[in-house]
């Protein structure tokens, strides 16, 4: 058949669009839209969830995640530097810690902190209530992951950078702080964003500690309403809330990356 490669590409793309269109139309025509709306988009339930879903649940999810991420980042930084240390015991300690917390399900860490600690130390619990447990658990797990990311980032900075900094008279720690780490963080911005998004979702595990009206976060809030109403609408609402957190985050990071690229 006499058809130029360009024509063939156009035809193939046209077929793809048609298939997509057919699937969408079939889904709309064949699905029971009335029932779907009743089960998943019940406007009365949506209205009833406001404003608490934002003022309490979303706020708590952001708070728990942010605290956990900041603690995890600091911990990851320390662990990464220990992993790169010439001192053997530091390296072994960091490696052991990383392997341990990276391999554990976050669920287990949350249970250990919320249930295990009071059993191990009668009459005591993790300070700070839900925020304390979330910060510690997300930080320990996230820190173990981020430590490896940060280490890889530091190692990706060419050795010539340290040599140039040291040649100018900078001590090792100054060269690290002013020259290596800023460059490492530009390299690892995308995987760190990934980690932050994962932590946002893992923050729901704090329900294991129990919650009150004031400390409830998105997932538990959704589940409460779901149990009351026997309707899936709350899940749709909280899903959208999670996207409200993560999508703008991705946009901001993409901007940051673009800016870093211009300077590269």
């Amino acid at each position: 058949m006499a058809m130029s490669p360009r024509k063939r590409a156009q035809l193939s793309r046209g077929i793809q669009y048609v298939v997509l269109l057919v699937v969408v139309v079939a889904a709309v025509v064949l699905s029971d839209l009335g029932e779907l709306q009743k089960q998943f988009f019940d406007t009365d339930i949506v209205t009833a969830m406001f404003p608490e879903v934002i003022t309490t649940a979303l706020r708590n999810t952001v708070l728990y995640t942010a605290c956990g991420f900041v603690f995890g980042l600091a911990l990851g930084m320390v662990l990464a530097l220990m992993r790169l240390s010439p001192v053997g015991p530091y390296r072994w300690l960091a490696t052991g810690f990383i392997e341990f917390f990276r391999g554990l399900p976050a669920l287990v860490v949350f249970i250990a902190l919320s249930v295990g600690v009071p059993i191990a130390f009668p009459g005591r619990e993790v300070p700070g209530g839900n925020l304390g447990v979330a910060t510690l658990a997300l930080g320990l797990v996230g820190g173990a992951y981020m430590a490896e990311t940060i280490r890889a980032g530091i190692q990706a900075v060419p050795t010539g950078q340290v040599e140039a900094a040291r040649s100018l008279g900078m001590p090792q720690t100054r060269a690290m702080r002013s020259i290596v780490i800023p460059q490492a963080f530009r390299i690892i911005l995308p995987p760190l964003t990934n980690e932050l998004i994962l932590l946002t979702k893992d923050s729901s595990l704090v329900y294991l500690t129990g919650y009150t009206l004031a400390t409830v976060e998105l997932a538990s809030f959704g589940r409460e309403v779901l149990n009351q109403e026997k309707n899936f609408t709350p899940l749709v609402v909280i899903s959208l809330c999670y996207l409200i957190i993560t999508v703008p985050l991705s946009v901001v990071v993409r901007r940051l990356e673009a800016r870093a690229d211009r300077a590269r």
Binding site: G160, Q161, E163, A164, A165, L168, Q183, A263
Partner: peptide
Amino acid sequence: GMVFQSFNLFPH
């Protein structure tokens, strides 16, 4: 003062 073959300017 030290000058390298590969310049080693700080790219950031």
